[in-house]
Structures are given as C-alpha cells and as structure tokens.
Simulated scan of single mutants.
Amino acid sequence: MNQRNEPTLLLVDGMAVLFRAYYATAASGYIRRTKAGLPTNAVYGFIRYFWDAVQTFGPSHVICCWDMGGKTFRGEEYAAYKGNRAEAPDDLIPQFALIKEVMDSLNIPNIGAAGYEADDCIGTLAKHYTEETDLNVMVLTGDHDMLQLINDRTSIIIMKKGHGNYMVYNPETLMAEKQLTPRQIIDMKGLMGDASDNYPGVRGIGEKTALKLVQEYGSIEGILNNLDQLTPSVRKKIESDLDMLHLSRKLAEIHCAVPVACTLEGCELRLDPDTVMDKFEQLEMKSLGSWMGVAIG
C-alpha cells in the first residue's frame, strides 16, 4: 500500500463499482459462481477494483455508499426520472446483499438513506468530513456527475477502462480538461439533460451548445439575464423550456444534507485477516485474499 502522507477518506460509489464489475465479466459470457450456484462475479470484480484503488491512493478511512432502492425525492419531482433503466440482471440481484456482507467483513461501513441515492450520501459525507475534520476526501466512481462535488479538499477519482486506470479530478484538472468549475457541471446538465437518468433539459440543446453557453455566461442565471444576446433559435428553445430547465438542474444537483453519519473511528481502515479470509473462503474466492495480501493469522 502507498505510504499515507495525510489522513484521507475514500468514499466508494458502491452502485457504480458493482455494476461496472458485473458487466466487465458478464460481457465475456462467464459468470463466476460458487459450487452451490450462487453468482459472485460482481462481488469478485468489485473487490478487485476497490482494493486496487486502496493500494493506489492509500486512504486511512473508507466508507461505501449505496442506493437503497424504492422511491427517491427525484422520482417524486419528476415521475420519468430513471424511467428508462432496465431491471438489474437476475445474476446481479443476489450480489447486492452479498457485497455488503463482504464490505462488513472488511470493517467498512455500508451507508445509504431511504429516499436518496448513493450520490447524495457521498455528497453529504464529503461535505461533513471536509468541513468538520482534517480529512481530505476522495470519491471512487465512474459517474461524471460527481465532478460537481470537487473542491480544494475533495477529489473525484473516475475509473476508466481496465484495472488501475484512473483520472483524478481536482479544481485545476477539471478546469484544464473541461474548462468548467464544479458548480457549472450542474448548469450543464440543466441545459443538456441526462439521457441515462431520463430527464431532457432544454429540448434541442446538446452538450456543445450547453458548454458554449455556460462558458460564455457563467451560469444558467447568467444565460437568462442575457437572453437578448443569444441567437433567436437558442433563445426560443430556452424560453419554451424554462420549467424543464430549472427542474433538470434540480434533478442534476447532488443533495448534501442527507440524514447519514459515520464516526471517524467507525470508518478507519482496519482489516481483521481471519474475518476477511473466512468470508472469502465461504464465497470460494480464497485466492482474492491472497491477492490482497491477507493471510490467515
């Protein structure tokens, strides 16, 4: 593991990592299973991704955040929110509970809140720990929406294709790559919408136009205050879709006041090798423990 230069909390976007792990292996047509037939490919892949990040970034503390299922406040605001999502594959469904058991065996808290998404739990915890403690925060995810959480104490680790391949965003790298501030990520989504989350933004405005407008006028408020400067076509699109513009921005913004909490002591990264190996043996993936460098005491 890397030397820890300063205390750092790694917030893991459990949903993003688990889905990535499932599809990375399921695409080959092979699903890892126990002798009893229990699918474990997503769990196995999750731990590979997760532990590689721990080795790479050397956090002193770790929390894993999850969607809880059921209705969310975004679904209440906009009934079609995520309405285009397919059901989770049958082989993945039992692994949602299984991965939480594995994280429990690693002494890593599993955090979620009814009515909210994992993103909101991550945003809330990042805000708390950077404001109330000395910890810096890193978020492990594949979701570019998380870039809105960046600040001087919070970095976003975007998982790229393949193991051990990351792009780490802070305010400087975000500006260098996208010419945007964290707050402007939300304004972009308000304008262009999000096909994967199934909200439209302003009809007829895509990423290229949204980027140009946000860069030129700074924010949605800046754009609305300068409608007379826009081309007639763009102005008409925005004026025709004002309600959806504001709703889309509301849906895009990560909520950072969720009723979740975890003590510093509760999320310190401390493995008990026996507990970890017992769980891996139960799931017939003892080799994973060896790969992690965990041996039975």
Rank of each mutant, 00 (worst) to 15 (best):
A261E: 10
P259W: 04
V234K: 06
H255R: 13
C256T: 14
S240L: 14
K237M: 10
V258T: 03
K236A: 11
K236M: 06
L242P: 03
D241I: 02
S248D: 00
V260S: 07
V258S: 07
D243I: 12
C256Q: 15
E253L: 11
H255V: 07
E239Q: 15
K250Q: 11
S240Y: 10
V234L: 13
P259S: 05
L251Q: 05
R249S: 12
K236S: 10
I238V: 07
A252G: 04
A257E: 15
K236T: 09
L247C: 10
V234W: 00
S248L: 01
E239N: 12
A261Y: 08
S240T: 13
I238Y: 06
L264H: 00
E239C: 12
D241L: 06
A261D: 12
K250L: 10
V234N: 10
I254H: 04
C262V: 15
K237T: 00
L247D: 06
T263S: 14
R235W: 03
D243L: 10
S248M: 02
I254S: 03
I254L: 10
C256A: 14
D241Q: 01
D241C: 08
R235E: 01
L247F: 07
C262T: 11
V260D: 03
A261I: 10
K236I: 05
E239W: 06
H246C: 08
L245G: 07
A252S: 08
H246Q: 11
E239A: 06
S240N: 14
V234C: 02
I238G: 00
P259Q: 07
A257L: 06
R249P: 13
H246W: 09
P259I: 03
A252Y: 07
I254C: 07
L242H: 04
V234Q: 06
D243R: 15
A261V: 02
D243A: 14
H246E: 14
E253P: 00
P259T: 01
A252Q: 06
L245R: 04
H246K: 14
S248A: 00
L242E: 03
K236V: 11
A257T: 14
H246A: 12
A257K: 12
L264S: 05
E253Q: 12
L242S: 06
D241Y: 05
V234I: 14
K250G: 03
S240I: 02
I254A: 03
K250H: 13
L251H: 06
C262G: 07
K236F: 00
K236Q: 11
T263C: 03
C256Y: 08
C256E: 09
V258G: 01
V234F: 04
T263V: 09
I254M: 05
E253I: 06
L251T: 05
A261P: 03
D243V: 14
P259V: 00
S248Q: 02
K237W: 03
L251A: 09
L242T: 04
L264E: 13
L242Y: 08
D241M: 05
I238N: 01
A257I: 07
C262M: 14
K250I: 10
H255Y: 14
H255F: 15
S240Q: 15
L247T: 10
L245M: 09
M244P: 00
E253N: 08
K236W: 00
